[in-house]
C-alpha cells in the first residue's frame, strides 16, 4: 500500500508549551485512521500542521506526495473542531462556495450540494438560511461542504462532538462511504467507541506523544483480558487461579455474594482459570471473559483517561 500521509519526528512548540513531541506515523491510502487522545493531547495542532495551517517546529510531514498540505489543499477536505458557516447563507450556497474554493465549478457544486443534502435528509432545508438550521443540521451541512469536491484525503477534527446518537450513526455511515469511494480518512476523537467501529488503524496520542499506532485489534491486545466472577468467593481464591495476575473487588457484599474482576496475565486464556475454579469447588455463579476495549487499551497505554482534559489550560484552571 502507498502512504497517503507520513509524519516523521514532528514536534510543535508554542512558546514554552510543547504541544506535540516527536510524532511519527503513517496512514495508507484508503484507510480510515482514528487519531485518538484526550482534549489537549495535541490532536488539533497535529491536524493543523498536516493541513499546513501551522508550521511544525521540527520534523517532516508528507501528504498526498506533497511536503506541505497547502500545496494539495484542493485534494483535501477538512472539518474543523470548531464549526461554523456564514449564518446568512443558505446550505446550498455555502456548500457551492466552499466547493468552489477547492476548484469545483459553481454549477457542479450546486448540483452536488443538492444531491448530498437530499441524501442526508436536508433537502427541505437547502434554501433556508444557516441560522435557521439546528446544530445537527448545520454540522451535516458543514461536513458536506468539506467533502463536496470529492477529496482524496479527508481530515475530520472531532466530527462526532455535538451530534445526537442518530446523527452520529449517520456520520459513521458517511465516513464509511467516503472510504468506500477511495478517500483516505483521518479523524480525531476522544470517544473510543467511534474509532472501534470505524477505524482500520488508530494512532493514540497522550500529552503530545504517540502512545500507540496500529489496528484496533492490536491496540486491544496491548491490554490484558479480564475475567468477571460472581459468587460466594474470596479474593485470595480467585488470585490463586492460573493466569490471574490481579483481582479487584468491584461489587456485591464483603461477605456472601461478591463480584470480582480478575486481570489475566498476557497470553493467558480464561479457560484454565474457569476449569481450575470448578475443580477447586469455588462457588462461581457467573463467569464472564471480557475482551479489553479500546478505552481500556488507551488507559493501559497512556495512563490517561480519554475524556480528561490534559491541556495546559485545563491544568492551569485546575490549579
Amino acid at each position: 500500500m502507498t502512504a497517503a500521509l507520513t509524519l516523521e519526528s514532528v514536534s510543535k512548540r508554542y512558546g514554552d508549551f510543547q504541544a506535540v513531541r516527536d510524532l511519527s506515523f503513517q496512514v495508507e491510502k484508503g484507510q480510515i485512521c482514528g487519531f485518538l487522545g484526550p482534549n489537549g493531547a495535541g490532536k488539533t495542532s497535529t491536524l493543523r500542521m498536516i493541513l499546513g495551517l501551522q508550521p511544525a517546529t521540527t520534523g517532516r510531514i508528507e501528504i498526498l506526495g506533497a511536503d506541505d498540505g497547502r500545496k494539495v489543499r484542493d485534494r483535501i477536505g477538512f472539518l474543523p473542531e470548531e464549526r461554523g458557516l456564514y449564518k446568512k447563507m443558505t446550505p446550498i450556497d455555502a456548500i457551492a462556495f466552499f466547493g468552489a474554493l477547492k476548484g469545483l465549478p459553481q454549477a457542479e457544486g450546486r448540483k452536488r450540494a443538492r444531491d448530498l443534502l437530499e441524501q442526508q435528509g436536508l433537502g427541505a432545508a437547502r434554501n433556508k438560511k444557516m441560522k435557521e438550521l439546528s446544530k445537527g443540521m448545520a454540522q451535516k451541512v458543514q461536513l458536506i461542504a468539506s467533502v463536496v469536491h470529492r477529496p482524496e484525503f479527508v481530515i475530520l477534527d472531532e466530527p462526532f462532538s455535538g451530534l445526537d446518537p442518530v446523527n452520529q450513526q449517520g456520520l459513521e455511515a458517511m465516513i464509511r462511504g467516503l472510504a468506500a469511494d477511495g478517500a483516505t480518512v483521518l479523524f480525531s476523537t476522544h470517544v473510543m467507541q467511534h474509532a472501534e467501529r470505524l477505524c482500520d488503524k488508530v494512532v493514540l496520542l497522550a500529552r503530545g506523544r504517540k502512545a500507540f499506532e496500529g489496528t484496533v485489534t492490536e491496540a486491544r491486545a496491548t491490554s490484558p483480558r479480564l475475567l468477571e466472577l460472581e459468587g460466594e468467593i474470596s479474593t485470595a481464591a480467585v488470585a490463586a487461579l492460573p493466569g490471574v495476575s490481579a483481582v479487584e473487588h468491584t461489587g456485591g457484599d464483603e461477605v456472601g455474594v461478591r463480584i470480582l474482576k480478575a486481570t489475566l496475565a498476557p497470553g493467558a486464556g480464561g479457560q484454565e482459570a474457569l476449569k481450575a475454579a470448578f475443580l477447586g469447588g469455588l462457588d462461581v455463579r457467573r463467569f464472564e471473559l471480557r475482551e479489553p476495549s479500546l478505552h481500556d487499551a488507551f488507559i493501559g497505554l497512556t495512563g490517561d483517561h480519554p475524556d480528561q482534559d490534559t491541556s495546559t489550560k485545563a491544568l492551569e484552571a485546575a490549579q
Partner: peptide, 16 residues
C-alpha cells in the same frame, strides 16, 4: 464575524 462564527479556520484550509 468570521472569527466568532468559526469560519476562518475552514477558509484557511481552502485558501492561503
Amino acid at each position: 464575524e468570521e472569527k466568532s462564527n468559526k469560519i476562518l479556520e475552514v477558509l484557511l484550509s481552502s485558501a492561503s
